[in-house]
């Protein structure tokens, strides 16, 4: 018995020592986690889904987010939570005869929605397409010459706010959903960042925060909403919300106001008198990738 236990004991000691070295090495390996996660409070980690937040929860969460914006970005912001208006479903229409491809809409989106400045991120991609086709595979989004060129059509693409959105269906945690007014939103505090929605969206409408967004204090848009343009946390998805924080207050989206060609039309699809309904009633419209059955709320049309 003794002969067997002694080397065993030495070996056990060695094993324990190796185990201790291993644990110490693992501690060192994981040490970078201590950096950013220091500032994560328990309240943040345990925050519930938007639909489960009581008015008191929202009050607490919004104030905390405002405080965080003050600390991280050195600017006083207000985070609101405008609700969908009754009997309102938003629609957008864009006149391809008028668009000149100047990307002012993309630029306005960049500023309005507090996008990361390094990447010049925006929710709008403007495609330059040769005459004689509307095939996106023959389009170019990376043009940088003065516009418009006479033989080109320009086509801005942003979230189409689909009635059958593939992106919300695939989300494993219901962090993105379609609101009653038709806007597809993301709860940035609930998204786990798996990017399945980005793979599912047929319009390249979604963006991921690959790092914490950088916005100088002077350029932060302080008029923010929880489901819309508040500065997004790193590691979560974001997308165009038709400027939810504006349109639910009755205002026009930032991209529309910025358009120097007046190519954009926005309004309530449920109101037969609205401009966007006038487009559908009087123009021949088409939607992007209609064959996919996503049923967009975004219509393209031509003057003639």
């Amino acid at each position: 018995m003794d002969e067997r236990t002694r080397p065993l004991r030495r070996r056990t000691l060695l094993k324990a020592a190796a185990g201790a070295v291993g644990v110490a090495a693992a501690g060192r390996a994981f040490s970078p986690l201590l950096g950013p996660w220091d500032s994560l409070t328990l309240d943040e980690v345990l925050q519930r889904h938007y639909s489960e937040l009581t008015p008191e929860d929202k009050e607490r969460v919004f104030r905390r987010l405002e405080e965080k914006a003050r600390q991280d970005y050195g600017v006083a912001v207000t985070i609101s939570d405008p609700q969908p208006r009754p009997r309102t479903k938003f629609g957008y229409a864009l006149n391809l005869s008028l668009c000149i491809g100047c990307r002012q809409c993309a630029q306005a989106c960049h500023r309005e929605n507090n996008h990361d400045r390094r990447t010049r991120n925006t929710y709008i991609t403007v495609m330059e397409i040769g005459k004689g086709t509307l095939d996106l595979s023959r389009a170019n989004s990376r043009y940088d010459h003065p516009v418009p060129l006479p033989d080109k059509t320009y086509m801005p693409v942003q979230c189409q706010q689909c009635d059958r959105p593939p992106c919300t269906a695939v989300c494993p945690v219901r962090a993105t959903w379609k609101e009653p007014d038709g806007i597809v939103v993301v709860d940035y505090d609930w998204c786990i960042g798996c990017r399945y929605c980005e793979a599912a969206c047929p319009y390249h409408a979604r963006r991921f925060n690959w790092a914490k967004p950088e916005v100088p204090a002077a350029e932060v848009n302080p008029d923010q909403a929880y489901l819309s343009n508040r500065i997004r946390p790193a590691g979560t998805m974001e997308k165009c919300t038709f400027c939810l924080h504006r349109v639910r207050m009755g205002r026009l989206p930032a991209c529309l106001e910025a358009c120097p060609a007046g190519a954009r039309v926005f309004g309530n699809l449920l109101d037969p008198g609205s401009e966007v309904r006038q487009v559908i009633a009087t123009k021949r419209v088409y939607v992007l990738k209609e064959g996919l059955g996503t049923v967009p709320s975004f219509y393209y049309f031509f003057t003639v």
Binding site: P32, L33, W37
Partner: peptide, 16 residues
């Protein structure tokens, strides 16, 4: 552990 460390850094500074 090299992998764990790389992942920890990725969490700390983002998926960039």
């Amino acid at each position: 552990l090299v992998g764990a460390n790389a992942w920890a850094q990725q969490v700390a500074s983002g998926m960039a």
